[in-house]
Amino acid sequence: MCVGIPGRIITVDDPEHRLATVDVGGVRRKINIACIVDEAHPPEACIGDWVLIHVGFAMSRIDEEEAQKTLELLRELGEMDAELEAMHAFDRAR
């Protein structure tokens, strides 16, 4: 359910009606940004935002810091994995 895809807002075309243009791998489409706009984040501030697009609406801003944290955790898991592998190799060698 719910095909959603990250894209980047490149222009805000109609702040009043919450319309902006988003770029997905070079493809552009007009979308509605009402769901990511509030007092603290007015339409003008949306330019450059990475958002998740679903049926022509920006549904949520992508938190780059959280994405980095997830990737960092995965990297650590990878390192743990490599260490485990090395330990197994050491055990096997004995």
Partner: peptide, 8 residues
């Protein structure tokens, strides 16, 4: 861009 359309 073909990937982009496909993902969208």
């Amino acid at each position: 861009a073909v990937r982009g359309v496909s993902e969208l």
